[in-house]
Amino acid sequence: MTQKQRVLTGITTTGTPHLGNYVGAIRPAIEASRNPDMEAFYFLADYHALIKCHEPARVAASRMEVAATWLALGLDTDNAVFYRQSDIPEIPELTWILSCVAAKGLLNRAHAYKAAVQVNEEEKAKDPDKGITMGLFSYPVLMAADILMFNAHKVPVGRDQVQHIEMARDIGGRFNHLFGQTFVLPEAIVDEKTAVLSGIDGRKMSKSYDNTIPLFLPEKKLRKTIMKIKTNSLEPSEPKDPATCTLFEIYNAFATQDDVRSVRERYAEGIGWGDMKILLFDYLNAILEEPRERYAELMADPAKVEKILLEGAEKARSIAGPFLAEIRKKTGLLPFS
């Protein structure tokens, strides 16, 4: 019998999910969760959140919002394993074990660490490591533990995250060399077709730019936010280029091919920006109406979400516990009798 391929994705809990998160990560992951030929692992990366967010209320709110979002959009928790990172104590233990084989020189090359050092050097700080925590420095090891704990074959990531999968391979390979074959070495999956959406100001939609369109805004707020999207000064009836338009970019990420073709023709005819904004709002609102209702129901029933996550954690620990016992044995951490 052929072993199912395991795919694993983590969602950092530092903000409210937005349209860019949906088309870039949530939608393809939910589709994968329904694939019976695949074992899908999805987790709330709440330990990772602590690296860059020291606001307890924000982390707590984001954990709930992210969980409710994935469930409202149809994550198949019967087929997929959905859990909080912090509910799996085997992960931080494996992180320490992997830290003991991970080369510091490897971590020195991590993009996030190098970028933080570069900022300090540009600001002529006396200490190039000023303000850099061990969490930031060593989080590639935590990420490796997330992946290697479940022997994930494939890890869907953005191009900026490929290095972390390569580091997980290096760390897992080093452990295998020292203690015998233990870990599957993961493969980064980068879907070049995955949409990266622009925000209301035309830059990449990102919490750090404060330019996002939250996924489940109430209807009136969604309309108001879409009306704020930046456009150029072309008048109605003037032909417009959809390739340079945030409104079209967002529409294209959600609409059918036939609808996209129709709107592309309206751009050539010179659709007015106000009309296009209303068209986009109506289209998105129709798609999001039902999941928005489910989201509201879940947000009002945290006990239900908690139950689902704890059931997911139980499934995850049924794999992680025996595997960690094997790892302990290989490293000499054995009981005396």
Rank of each mutant, 00 (worst) to 15 (best):
L178A: 14
G180Y: 00
Q181L: 02
T182Q: 09
F183L: 04
E187Y: 13
E187D: 15
I189N: 10
D191A: 10
D191G: 13
D191R: 10
D191M: 00
E192T: 15
K193P: 04
K193N: 13
A195Y: 06
A195Q: 05
V196Q: 12
S198A: 10
I200Y: 05
I200S: 09
I200F: 00
D201C: 06
G202W: 05
K207A: 04
K207T: 13
K207Y: 03
S208F: 05
D210N: 12
D210V: 03
N211T: 12
I213C: 05
I213R: 03
L215G: 15
F216W: 02
F216M: 03
P218K: 11
E219G: 10
K220C: 02
K220S: 11
K221P: 07
L222F: 10
R223K: 14
K224V: 04
T225L: 00
I226H: 14
M227P: 02
K228P: 00
K228Y: 00
K230R: 12
K230I: 11
K230P: 02
K230V: 15
T231P: 01
T231A: 03
T231Q: 01
N232M: 02
L234V: 14
E235G: 06
P236N: 12
P236R: 10
S237P: 01
E238K: 10
E238W: 01
K240V: 02
P242S: 10
L247E: 04
E249S: 14
I250N: 10
Y251C: 06
N252K: 14
A253L: 00
A253S: 15
A253R: 06
A253C: 11
F254P: 00
T256D: 12
T256F: 00
T256K: 07
Q257V: 12
D258C: 02
V260G: 03
R264I: 01
R266F: 09
Y267K: 06
E269Y: 09
G272C: 02
W273M: 00
W273I: 04
D275T: 11
D275K: 02
K277S: 08
K277M: 05
I278Q: 05
I278Y: 05
L279N: 08
L280E: 04
L280S: 10
F281H: 15
F281D: 09
F281K: 12
D282G: 08
Y283C: 02
Y283F: 09
N285D: 13
A286M: 00
I287M: 01
L288Q: 10
E290I: 15
P291F: 07
P291I: 06
R292D: 13
R292C: 08
Y295R: 00
L298K: 03
L298Y: 12
A300G: 15
A300C: 08
D301G: 12
